[in-house]
Design a protein around this nucleic acid. Structure first.
Lengths: 116, 116
DNA sequence: GGAAAATGAAACGTTAGCGTAACGATTTTC
DNA sequence: GAAAATCGTTACGCTAACGTTTCATTTTCC
């Protein structure tokens, strides 16, 4: 039984979440950064720069830069791959998990608040 | 009967939409721009710069710049208010309505695709 | 009518992301 | 082992958003 939303509900949900993020989240991730972060936490590892770049259909420097930024925010970590030392394995962090947990709650709360 | 999502569904939904946007939407609105656009189309008019600034808890130049950008994209329009000629009334456009319609479809499709 | 307030925009310098093109380090290929 | 390919990063110049301050215009208040 899939989840069915009306057009109004879908946009209302997006509106509520966007509004809340703008008001209260000072971290202010880009849409790309958000997509990368979610991908890292929702898709089974390992994650590499080239893998993320290919999946998101984006160039590698975009991934590198996003990891730089989110790394400083403590949302993500990087470790060299010992099997192939050219590669870098992207690791999850407690900070990142916490951040997405809050985001999930926000989405759920907004969904719950939607008019029928 | 409110809409209940699990944490996993909420994040999965966000993930799917973000991913799709990153891949296919070249317009690439900021989170703030997105919030402004949704607000203009989902909340009854009239909308003014100061009103949006107050609602989003953001400074006025943020609104002005976002309207500049989205105006050039054809998502939004501005008209001086004849009743109080200091104010500007923000108007919806066909382009903006179309854009949000597509976004709504995207959200709905992702919601429908969620694992139970 | 003149001072004060309010509105939206413009100006300023700063920051951060972008795409493209290189680069150093490693691994693969033959 | 030398040459080619691969991986992530850095460098370059550019664009756009940021916060703060200032501005011109218009309205409100005595």
């Amino acid at each position: 039984m899939p989840i069915e939303l009306t057009a109004s509900q879908a946009l209302g949900l997006w509106h509520g979440v966007a509004l809340d993020q703008v008001r209260h989240d000072d971290r202010d991730l880009t849409l790309r950064q958000m997509a990368i972060l979610l991908h890292i936490y929702l898709v089974p590892p390992p994650h590499t720069v080239r893998g993320l770049a290919a999946t998101l259909e984006v160039t590698k420097p975009v991934i590198t830069r996003a990891l730089d930024t989110m790394g400083e925010m403590g949302l993500v970590d990087r470790v060299r791959d010992d099997a192939d030392r050219r590669s870098v394995i992207i690791k999850r962090t407690v900070g990142g998990a916490l951040y997405l947990e809050k985001l999930g709650d926000l989405v759920r709360n907004q969904a719950r608040r939607l008019p029928l």
